[in-house]
Amino acid sequence: MNNPKKPDLAQRAYRRKKIKDAALVLPLLGAFLLASPFITIFATDGYIFGLPLPFIYIFGVWLFLVIAARRMARLLSEP
C-alpha cells in the first residue's frame, strides 16, 4: 500500500512464470487428450447432432488447443 509499484512488479514476474509453465503444459495436455488411452472414452459409436462422437471430440479438442495456443502466444509475446 505504501509502495504500490513493488508488489505489482513481483506479481507480474510471478504471472509471467505461470504463463511459461502453462506454455509447457499445453502440449502435454494435448498429447494426453489426443494420444493417450483417455481418447478411448470418446471413441465410441455415439452421435451428437448427427456427427460421430470421435469426430466431434477430436476436432473439438483440436479447436480448443488452437484457441489456447493463440491466447498463450499473446501472453508470451507481452513484454
Partner: peptide, 15 residues
C-alpha cells in the same frame, strides 16, 4: 494423426 503430431509440436513451440 499426421496433423496431430505437428499440432502438438507447434503449440509446444516454447519448448
Amino acid at each position: 494423426t499426421i496433423y496431430l503430431g505437428p499440432t502438438l509440436v507447434f503449440i509446444g513451440w516454447w519448448w
